[in-house]
Amino acid sequence: MIFWLISTIIKIIVVFGIILLAAAYLTLLERKIAARIQNRLGPMEAGFHGLLQPIADGIKLFFKEDIIPAEANKALFILAPIIAVIPALVTFSVIPFGAPVKILGHIVPLQITDVNIGILFILALTSLGVYGVVVGGWASNSKYALLGGLRTAAQMISYEISLALSIIGVIMIAGSLSLANIVSAQSHIWFIVFQPAGFLIYLIASTAEMNRVPFDLGEAEGELVAGFHTEYSSMKFAFYFIGEYAQIVVNSAIITTLFLGGWQGPFLPSVIWFIIKVFAVILVYLWFRWTYPRLRYDELMHFGWKFLLPLALANIIVTGFVMILLGK
């Protein structure tokens, strides 16, 4: 019992620290990749090739003046960035990031907790991410923030349905909602082979869910200044940023677990495989951002409701048919 408690607490601290560190260094990675795509060098001054840039940014944000607009709803204004960060961090508690290891005669699963409804837990938490944006946009009492919040809310509701439906194919094949079981079901073939459509839908819908280009309608600079976080400054602004980048890490980890075989792989230790796969998916997300132009609002809604949603439904039906035909 004591051993379990200590090992769980250590796991929580390590995972928490790594996600926050990864979120900070993703800002540097994003700037570097953007620079490479645009044939520039990116941050070069702070540290070797800009390696200290995230720390410099953090210090800068920390010492900036923290402004709360006079007419803003103070309590909600402070609460909103916190709501934006928490779901992203909590989601990681059910993701298995390595094969079980044996320490002092106890078998420790490298996963903070294995709930038997793991996928639903993740979906429930991702569906809460919208509150941080909406409440922030509303509490700022600014028209740009309000419009950004509204747009984001409408967009996230639309894409959430496709996101949830794209996973159902995986659940049908694995026959379980627990993420540990889903990973072990992929020991021979990754689910991306059986579910290529589901994988693509999840990739696109999660990009929309995170409000990243080409779906960043909620913070379109050309129209809405900065969208829902227009009025935010200092550490509250930083919280929104941490939330966004932590979500990239978490979503990449979910894709790795559901479609890319989780921590499984030959030769290297399981945790290394997990990190490699997550990093590859993160690179795809960043690549998206610097490749595609932003969609117009009506295009976004058409794409979500008239293309992604029917495709996700068709994917479920086809998966069901094939499974019956193969007699599984």
Binding site: F121, V134, A153
Partner: peptide, 26 residues
Amino acid sequence: MEFLAAMQVLVYAGAIMVLVVLVIML
């Protein structure tokens, strides 16, 4: 009843209440 709990959060807190908040804002 973990399934019901997840559904409660997913459907009510995550979907229906977002719509309510949206209408209040609109």
